[in-house]
């Protein structure tokens, strides 16, 4: 492993593909042609006196069925801001009761392969990160990113959601997905990204020997001849490639001792972001938690400032 003495000065090897905008415009267009077909059912078991919880299913790219949890305040008047909550790599999507209790219409998506969205596609963990990785047109994250973006479609389909007040938040893989959704869906007005994964893929396998990035190192150990194909593929999916398209207000928090998502990649991501209203919180003495114990309050205030729940 070769880590930087000063991770803030790290120069990423990611090269933004010349046709990346056309690639994603095409994928988004393909997705838009598929009817959302959202099915929303009240879940009395998971609801409480303060929060109504719904199980949601919709259709995404490749006609894959996607599940999610939708939570909103039990008693509300008028429209609510919408918040898309995107999940970590190996965790299950949380029921966003905490956000609903704060006045948001919150949707927590389970992209393909997660429990409840794995009936048609289930590569497992480890395994998901390298599924189809030799071809950008078959790489799993092509659909996985669309499954997350469709969460925006779901939120704007709800009468109670104010489409002018939409945000996205997540940590780890969710931090990477926040960047992706903010880049690809202009409806997003504000974003937060914690300890972002999916940024500097090929840098990360040189910077850390921990999973999940280790999955790519495992793959290349078995298929060394595929190095260039893998590098070419992930460049289209790398948060650093997509970051210039992020123009909404955004905050990013990283831990300088993060052994899962190396801080070097977090700095590179932040520098690449196109937003004029962006702030980085780099916490020394913290790992993949990126000082969540304190930073959660900063996220709550930042989202409240922009979305006014």
């Amino acid at each position: 492993m070769t880590i930087q003495a000063n991770p803030a000065e790290f120069v990423s090897s990611v090269k933004r593909p010349a046709d990346i905008d056309a690639f994603w415009a095409d994928v988004l267009a393909q997705t838009a042609q598929i009817p959302l077909q959202a099915d929303v059912s009240y879940d009395p078991l998971r609801s409480s006196p303060q929060v109504d919880v719904y199980q949601v299913h919709y259709t995404s790219l490749d006609h894959v069925g996607i599940a999610g949890w939708y939570a909103r305040p039990a008693n509300h008047a008028g429209q609510l801001p919408g918040l898309l909550v995107v999940p970590g790599y190996s965790m299950e999507p949380l029921i966003p009761k905490n956000w609903a209790a704060r006045g948001y219409a919150a949707f927590s998506v389970a992209p393909r392969g997660k429990l409840r969205s794995n009936g048609q596609f289930n590569p497992g963990y480890p395994g998901l990160l390298t599924h189809g990785i030799v071809d950008r047109n078959t790489y799993i994250y092509r659909g996985f990113y669309m499954d997350s973006c469709r969460g925006v479609d779901f939120l704007v389909s709800r009468d109670e959601v104010d489409a002018d007040r939409l945000g996205v938040t997540g940590h780890s893989q969710g931090g990477g997905l926040s960047v992706v959704v903010a880049a690809l869906r202009p409806e997003i007005k504000v974003a937060t990204s914690g300890a972002p994964f999916l940024c500097g893929f090929m840098d990360a396998i040189e910077l850390t020997d921990g999973y999940p990035y280790q999955e790519i190192a495992d793959y290349l150990r078995l298929h060394p001849e595929s190095l260039q194909q893998v590098t070419d593929t992930v460049a289209y999916f790398d948060g650093i490639s997509l970051a210039p398209k992020v123009t909404c207000p955004i905050i990013v928090n990283i831990g300088l001792q993060d052994s899962t998502c190396p801080p070097e990649t977090g700095y590179a991501l932040f520098r690449a972001m196109g937003s004029e209203d962006k702030q980085l919180y780099d916490y020394d003495g913290f790992g993949h938690d990126a000082n969540n114990a304190v930073h959660t309050g900063i996220i709550e205030s930042f989202l409240a400032q922009h979305l006014e729940p």
Partner: peptide, 14 residues
């Protein structure tokens, strides 16, 4: 949770 990793996330594969 549904996932058990080969070694816990965040630890060294070494």
């Amino acid at each position: 949770g549904s996932v058990a990793d080969l070694v816990p996330q965040g630890t060294s594969n070494g």
